[in-house]
């Protein structure tokens, strides 16, 4: 099966920043992404969990985008402008996709 190179960007960010990040991605012409809830974890401020929380203030989400390598810098510039001052992690990994024209 023919596959094509792509970049998988995973942005773990505070839930309250979700709409700002997705707005920035849309502005950068990244129209395809998935958002996953993060159930809990542990970081520099200690462990945390979504369970029982009624506010989005303590939660995190993951925004996952898969883009053509040529579009990576534009995506990262847009994402960094939003996440720069906030808790979060941005990772970029190589991946393969079947239908390159979709990314």
């Amino acid at each position: 099966m023919q596959t094509h190179d792509a970049k998988r960007v995973v942005i773990t960010i505070e839930a309250v920043m979700e709409s700002r990040l997705t707005d920035a991605l849309q502005t950068a012409d990244v129209t395809g992404y998935s958002i996953l809830p993060v159930l809990g974890g542990s970081g520099r401020s200690g462990p945390w969990s979504r369970e029982g929380q009624v506010s989005r203030a303590g939660g995190m989400v993951q925004v996952i985008c898969i883009v053509h390598p040529d579009r990576l810098d534009k995506l990262l510039d847009a994402a960094f402008a939003v996440v720069e001052r906030h808790i979060g992690i941005v990772t970029v990994t190589d991946c393969q996709v079947l239908r390159a024209e979709r990314f």
Binding site: E14, V16, M17, R20, S45, G46, V54, S55, R56, A57, G58, R85, H86, I87
Partner: peptide
Amino acid sequence: SYIAVPAAMRVALPEANPSIYL
């Protein structure tokens, strides 16, 4: 507050430590 203000502070004052105010 522990619902409206923490969310606003995370957006507007991300440098503030949420562990303290929460």
